[in-house]
């Protein structure tokens, strides 16, 4: 069973992002970039399925600029067998990314595609579901447990009220939630080995897909700031303030 894992290069989760001076976009100059944390979980799940003998090959794919190779190398160091970069200088919208990914998946013909539930830059939470629609695949989003049984997967999903378990026919799309697994760190020998693994770079134009934008980013601004509050000295004083000043408890 082949597994494809689409990953995204994003601003590291520790960075506090700010708008550019002219508010035309966010300021990404000289900020630390990493693999999207939910994609690390996706890679980890695929690699564990391979280690368990369920999967035969794990392929990491990204749609992005040349420098996204860095994250693909990380994926290879974490255990992916090969990687594909669909090179594109612009940042695409989720619908376009899903269209590009669907082409790659048609070519690769995997049984399972594991994505992150959300990229922590745009916080869109769309690509996996869109990809499932374009391929007419079943989808299991926000997965916290995945069990493969022949031609189906049984997936437990984190939903607002608790947990839901569904059965999906393969090939299918799974998107990862935080509790699916705890990703490993890449070891030095594996980082060295990853340098020799196959990383195929293809210009996006070769896929002949219309990836023009449907939306326009008009501006990016800071959210309204909260007024700094005060420190209280005791539980007594806290209760007093909540009753008489804030009037939120009686």
């Amino acid at each position: 069973m082949k597994i494809v894992v689409p990953i995204k290069r994003v601003v590291d989760y520790n960075v506090k992002v700010r708008p550019l001076g002219d508010q035309s976009d966010v300021d990404l100059n000289n900020v630390k970039m990493s693999m999207n944390p939910f994609c690390e979980i996706a890679i980890e799940e695929a690699v564990r399925l391979k280690e368990a003998g369920t999967a035969t090959e794990v392929i990491a794919v990204t749609v992005g600029k040349k420098d996204s190779q860095e994250q693909l190398r990380t994926a290879l160091a974490l255990g992916a067998d090969r990687a594909i970069l669909i090179e594109c200088e612009e940042l695409l919208e989720p619908l376009s990314i899903a269209k590009v990914l669907s082409k790659v998946i048609e070519e690769e013909d995997p049984k399972l595609v594991i994505l992150g539930k959300q990229a922590i830059d745009g916080d869109n939470n769309q690509t996996g579901q869109m990809l499932a629609a374009l391929l007419n695949f079943a989808q299991a989003t926000f997965a916290s447990k995945v069990i493969i049984e022949d031609d189906v997967a049984v997936v437990t999903r984190e939903i607002d009220g608790g947990l839901q378990t569904i059965k999906i026919k393969l090939p299918a799309i799974v998107t990862t939630d935080l509790r699916l697994n705890e990703p490993r760190y890449a070891s030095l020998p594996n980082i060295m080995k990853a340098k020799k693994k196959e990383l195929d770079i293809r210009p996006i134009e070769d896929l002949e897909i219309d990836v023009s934008s449907r939306t326009e980013l008009l501006s990016v601004e800071l959210p309204p700031e909260r007024q700094a509050g005060i420190k209280v000295e005791s539980v007594e004083e806290l209760l007093n303030k909540l009753k008489t000043e804030a009037k939120v408890i009686s």
């Binding site: 992002v17 619908l95 922590i120 916080d123 939470n125 449907r214 959210p223």
Partner: peptide
């Protein structure tokens, strides 16, 4: 269609505000 996720304000019938980067910034999108 390109979905607009998690809007917090409606500017007009086609323009909306939404948080990005864990709410560090607010984008206005048409």
């Amino acid at each position: 269609v390109q979905q607009i996720s998690e809007i917090i304000e409606i500017i007009s019938e086609d323009t909306f505000k939404r948080p990005i980067y864990a709410g560090s910034c607010i984008a206005t999108v048409k």
